[in-house]
Write a protein that binds this DNA or RNA. Sequence first.
RNA 1: GGUCCGUUCGUCUAUCGGUUAGGACAUCAGGUUUUCAACCUGAGAAGAGGGGUUCGACUCCCCUACGGACUGCCA
Length: 467
Amino acid sequence: MSHRPVVTRIAPSPTGYMHIGTARTALFNWLFARHHGGTFLLRIEDTDRERSTSQATAAILRGMTWLGLDWDGEAVSQFDQKDRHAAVAHEMLARGAAYKCFASQDEIEVFREAATAEKRSTLYRSPWRDAAPATHPDARYVIRMKAPQTGDTVIDDAVQGRVTFRNDLLDDMIVLRSDGTPTYMLAVVVDDHDMGVTHVIRGDDHLQNAARQTMVYDAMGWDIPVWAHIPLIFGPDGKKLSKRHGATGVEEYQAMGYPAAGMRNYLTRLGWSHGDDEFFTTDQAKEWFNLEGIGRAPARLDFKKLENLCGQHIAASDDAALLHELEAYLAVTDAPPLNDVQRDTLSRALYCLKDRAKTFPDLIEKAEFSLNARPVIPDDAAAKTLDPVSRSILKTLTPQLQTGTWTKETLEPFLTDAAAAHGIGFGKLAGPLRAALAGRTATPSVYDMMLVLGKDETIARLNDAAT
RNA sequence: GGUCCGUUCGUCUAUCGGUUAGGACAUCAGGUUUUCAACCUGAGAAGAGGGGUUCGACUCCCCUACGGACUGCCA
């Protein structure tokens, strides 16, 4: 119960891509730290040398960066601290809080199989717990925690409440492997302590670990951090999120073209609430975020809602930032970059595009009229509107358009009158105009397209279609 | 099997013993419109089941059911 400045961390293991659940946990930790003006650290849990890869570490860094979750200081490698971990393990040995166990993996394996077969508890009780040092063989050993076997270990969790575990149901976990490397259970505690972590916000798959880790804190006489075990994220069907659901990796979401701000908003709201607030900025999230608002039940991913929120964020973005993020999106998907003309036209078109796009692919699709150079190739539906009559009307338009001023205020009455002059409503004229200008039947407003395209380009496209 | 956690509209959630159980997404029906999107209006839609405690339970307790996590010299 100290008043130390808040320090949180995200501690992903680099054994694959960055899971969306990890991203949300990172987000919560980041939000909490930023809310309190504290520190948010990134630690790569790479003590599993078999499975850790530098590519996975790079993917984590990319994912964090994309989501805008800036961490303080350098990302640290847990493995780099292995000597410190080993020292703590030996310190525990010296304090009588741990012991050397000479049981081989095979031995334990045999025990577990037998226990499982006989439906007995697989809890392993090492015969070396109380063995006199004189009886120790000259062989490889692991260091096991000498866990209390009676009483309870109580976790006061900021999300889950008070959770009690019976000590006689917990075994003496290994803290140092026979090759001298630390296990996760030891390394997290040592690192969190050394890094001054005050609040451990992580998936509730770690809830039981908190009990075991508490024992290490106690053995070393260290302060226990505030625990906050948050529920896991499920797929839309309520099942554990798997490849089958389409997207489990953060980078897949980026590649699908969701804006980072929308992603943050959605992920923050998933399992956390601030009254009825649904759409909010990252600044608001930082201002509002607290542990009390975190729910206790797992939440399902809802892509429709994600899209809706993303659409709102795109609409709320300022044009320059939106263009910048769009180009970044293009880059990660290996799409050809925008040329100068496209960038210029698009930046002028954004105002009439961003209200109607939910994702970047969506935006690009709707922006096509401004991205593609002549000639405009109409799709089938658009081609149908360009019948001889329509084409002849378009033809009469261009000379008159040539002389008018190019503003919405002049264009609007002009086109309305032109339609009327041919005995049709503007709605009838809009179809062929769309086809000529965009080659589509679904486009932004005709006026907006004309404004974005400019007089010369508009007339050229109209002439193309009329002939 | 054991331990632990969870369970409000289809989905995300509000409610912190007293509400016609609210909002959002989605859905459906209207409206507006220059197509699409958007927007506006409206509708349907929920406390897993059973016991308690209480004047009164979605809210507190117990049991059941269902879901999940953990049960590694993985993290």
